Amino acid sequence: MAKPKNVVVVGAGIIGASIAWHLARQGAAVTVVAEKSGGVATPASFAWINASWGNPEFYFRFRRYAMEGWQRLAKELPDIGVNWCGSICWDMSLEDMETYTTQYGRWGYGIRRINRDDVAALEPYLSQVPAIALRIAEEGVVEPVAAAQRMLAGAQARGARLLYGANAQGLLQEGNRITGVATTFGALQADHVVLAAGAGAAVLAKTAGVTLPVETPPGLIVHSRPTEKRLNGLVLAPELHMRQTAEGRIIAGADFGGRDPGEDQQAAADRLFTKLRTMLKGADDLALDFFTVGYRPTPKDGFPIIGKAETHEGLSVAVMHSGVTLAPAVGLLLSREILSDKPEERLTPFRLSRFG
């Protein structure tokens, strides 16, 4: 019997957790290195699962494939907590809504126009109801930290080592081959290393001379104290995207990723939360609990970087915004590529080499 491939995954957010789960499920010897379970960017995610507006068709198809991956994950890990609650959207012009409906409908997305009465029936607590909106019933949400931790626990049950509190300091290499990771716990040797460390991936890649063209724009998300059920699904209104979490918190951003709060983060959070309260009936008792500012790892062309690094053997990269939507697809495809040593065709558009 062949010896299991020894893979070190750097990062325990939603992407690193998915990669670890899929590797361990296929028999790899996995070690996860991370500051903490659940990662750094993942707790600040809006956690919307979608193949939504503004994407070219090839990326829409990949996101739709990833959405199907969440259905698969829910069967593999039944308590992972996916909620296919659907969305209501009116955060664009009527012309853009028409384009969105026509184009995405042609691609097979379950999108339809609804009127004011439909919106009020779906979300009776809304105080501001649009005359026209779009309904996408197949979209959903997941509680991202809990989902990541469930995948990590699944990987651990299949033999993975989880090293929390171990900061990765650099890549180890011999010639053009990556041989492991230097950490605060010491050197970890590996047959293969995966960088899934979000905003920190670029710094680690640079230690081996690999440049990741990634930006890290900040995004503000406000979190209410737990409250009674007030939202049934995702509400994507102009300048305010919101949903209610499994524990009853209403979370919101100026858009799904949150926007730069500027220098006075508390003031920006207070303004955003005031807007949230005005959108809901009977919200006098709704209180801000805390806010997060997440630094979203975003490749400069807006599309994910996924796959083996062509210039270095033994190294793969998985860095992206929209990590929650894409996590199941990235974990499955990248783990297959690593363990088979054969390129996955679906990852072709997302390789680092496209940047030259």
Rank of each mutant, 00 (worst) to 15 (best):
P4I: 00
N6C: 06
V9T: 14
V9W: 09
V10F: 09
G11R: 05
A12H: 03
A28P: 00
A29K: 15
A29W: 12
V30W: 05
T31F: 06
T31E: 13
T31V: 14
V32Y: 00
V33L: 01
A34M: 01
E35T: 06
K36G: 09
G38C: 03
G39F: 04
G39M: 01
P43K: 00
A44Y: 04
W48V: 00
A51K: 05
G54P: 13
N55Q: 15
E57D: 13
F60W: 12
E68Q: 12
G69N: 08
G69E: 07
L73K: 04
L77H: 04
L77N: 05
V82Q: 07
W84C: 01
W84V: 06
C85P: 05
G86W: 11
W90D: 14
S93H: 09
E95T: 15
R106A: 15
G108T: 02
G110C: 08
G110T: 08
R113V: 12
I114P: 05
I114V: 11
L122I: 13
L126C: 01
S127M: 02
A133S: 10
L134G: 07
R135D: 13
V142A: 09
E143L: 12
V145L: 04
A146I: 08
R158N: 12
A168V: 11
Q169P: 04
Q169E: 13
E174K: 15
G175N: 14
N176C: 02
N176S: 11
T179N: 01
V193K: 09
A196E: 10
G198V: 03
G200T: 04
G200N: 15
L204W: 09
T207P: 09
A208N: 14
L212D: 03
E215M: 10
G219L: 06
P226N: 09
N232P: 00
N232K: 10
L234C: 03
A237N: 02
E239Y: 09
I251Q: 04
F256N: 11
G258R: 01
A268S: 15
A269D: 07
D270M: 03
D270V: 08
T274D: 04
L286Y: 01
F290E: 14
F291S: 12
T292M: 13
T298G: 12
D301T: 09
E310L: 12
E313T: 12
S322F: 01
G323E: 02
V324C: 11
P328A: 05
A329D: 06
L332G: 02
R336D: 07
E337D: 09
E337A: 11
L339K: 05
S340E: 14
S340W: 04
D341Y: 04
R346H: 15
R346L: 13
L347D: 00
S353I: 12
G356H: 12
